[in-house]
Every structure is written in C-alpha cells, then in structure tokens.
Simulated scan of single mutants.
Amino acid sequence: MITAVEEAVVEADGVRDLVVSGDGAWLTRGYSSLHGIATLCSTTAKPKVIDTNWCSKTCTKCQGAESLRRVNFDLFKTFQENHECQLNFTGTSGAMEKEMIREMFCRSLSKYKIKYISYIGDGDAKVHSFLTSNSPYLGVRYYSAECFDRLSSMRKRFNLKITNRRKKRTIATVTSTTSAANDSFSESDDEMLFMLNDKDSIDITQDLIGLDLPDDDTNTDYEPGGDD
C-alpha cells in the first residue's frame, strides 16, 4: 500500500495532499451486522487501495473461550489478558463506515506522511457531516458520487445548448447572402464548448466546489442493507 501511496504522490507532482475515494461494506444485509470493512483508494489514472479498516461488535475468540470460564478460570483469565480481542466497536452498524473512514484519515500522517484533502464517497453513509465536524485536519472536502452525476448532466445540457446554437447559426449562414452573416459565426463558440475531458482528480474537485450537498444528506446515519 505504501507503493500505491507514493505512486499517487508522484502523479500529483510530488504534492502529499491527496484526493481519495472510499466505501464501506458489511458482512450481512440489514441493520444488525456485527462486522464491517472500509477501504480508501487513490484517485489516480490507475486507482489502487491505499488503506483498509475493519470493525467488529463481537469477538469469536472470546466466545470460543467462554467454555473455559467454568472449567479452568485461571486459564480463561490468562487467555483474556493475552489474546488480541477482535471486539473494537460499539454502536449501530450504520455508524461503522464513518468511524472507519475517519480513523484512516487520522492515521494518514503517521502511517504515510500525507493528508487526504478531499474524500469522494458513494453518498450512502453519512460520512460527510462526520468528517467535516470531526476533521483530523483543516480543509477536508467531501464529495458524493451523486455530485459527479450532477456535473455530468450539467455538461451534457451545456453541450446540447451550444450545439443547437451552432446549428441555427450554420443555417443562417447558408441562407444569408451577406458577408456579415458569414462572419457572425465566430469560432469563439468552439472555445466555450464544455467537453468532458481527462481532467485529473484535483481539477474535478475544483469543478465540484460549487455543488454543495443538500443539508438533508448530512443528518442521519445510514444503516447497511441497500448496498453491500
């Protein structure tokens, strides 16, 4: 994963402030999954996983050792003191993702000596408000995949308007008998065309700054069940 991080830094021209995407998943559908996982990925031309995290509301080792409690309490106590307990989370299953994502943000400096300046999520879990209100460092921006859909729709509508305008001017040019009409079709419209391109993640982030998420998207915790 360190290699993946350094590749992302190289692609960002040596800047150690990265844009990352992430998502969480649960072992089972519904609202009571005992285990969850989350990952962060780079947003380079060839994205790679750069960090992972997990949550568990139970420990199978502890459960398996319960039979020792009555048979040999001293052995049970020794086991409890020395084993690596898997139970590391208490709370609702829907709150797992935001906790796991934030924990990976918090350890980015100690683990990789980098900062995650922007996070792109799928919009299912309420990571947005949690990251902004409990930010590990200043300036973290959150964007949902829905923002990219909205941006794509805006581009398509803008392109359609420009295309229709050019068609009308072309018809006017053909039917007109004056040179002024011919000169009116300026090539400046070509420069206005808002085409989809191969912008890097930082440029796309700048396009999204004006697309604020509705307040309704940041209020409640998402419960797993719709998208594992």
Results as ranks from 00 to 15, higher is better:
121 G>V: 01
122 D>T: 06
126 K>T: 12
127 V>G: 05
131 L>Q: 02
132 T>V: 11
134 N>K: 12
134 N>T: 04
135 S>W: 01
138 L>W: 08
139 G>D: 01
140 V>K: 07
142 Y>N: 00
142 Y>M: 04
143 Y>G: 01
143 Y>F: 12
145 A>G: 02
145 A>Q: 05
148 F>K: 01
149 D>G: 07
150 R>N: 05
151 L>Q: 03
152 S>M: 06
154 M>G: 07
156 K>T: 07
157 R>L: 03
157 R>S: 15
160 L>N: 05
161 K>L: 15
166 R>A: 13
167 K>T: 09
167 K>A: 14
167 K>M: 11
169 R>Y: 08
169 R>L: 15
170 T>G: 15
171 I>C: 13
172 A>Q: 07
174 V>I: 09
175 T>Q: 14
175 T>I: 07
175 T>V: 14
175 T>N: 15
176 S>G: 14
176 S>D: 05
181 A>T: 00
181 A>F: 03
182 N>P: 06
182 N>F: 11
182 N>K: 11
185 F>E: 00
186 S>E: 05
186 S>R: 01
186 S>L: 01
187 E>Y: 08
188 S>I: 00
188 S>E: 07
189 D>G: 02
190 D>L: 10
190 D>Q: 04
190 D>R: 07
191 E>R: 01
191 E>T: 04
191 E>K: 14
195 M>W: 14
196 L>A: 15
197 N>V: 11
198 D>P: 00
200 D>N: 03
201 S>G: 02
205 T>L: 10
206 Q>V: 06
207 D>M: 12
207 D>K: 02
208 L>S: 01
209 I>Q: 11
210 G>W: 02
212 D>R: 12
213 L>A: 14
213 L>Q: 06
216 D>M: 03
217 D>S: 15
217 D>H: 13
218 T>S: 11
218 T>V: 06
219 N>Q: 02
219 N>C: 13
220 T>P: 01
222 Y>G: 12
222 Y>V: 02
222 Y>I: 06
223 E>W: 03
225 G>V: 04
226 G>V: 13
226 G>C: 10
227 D>A: 15
227 D>E: 09
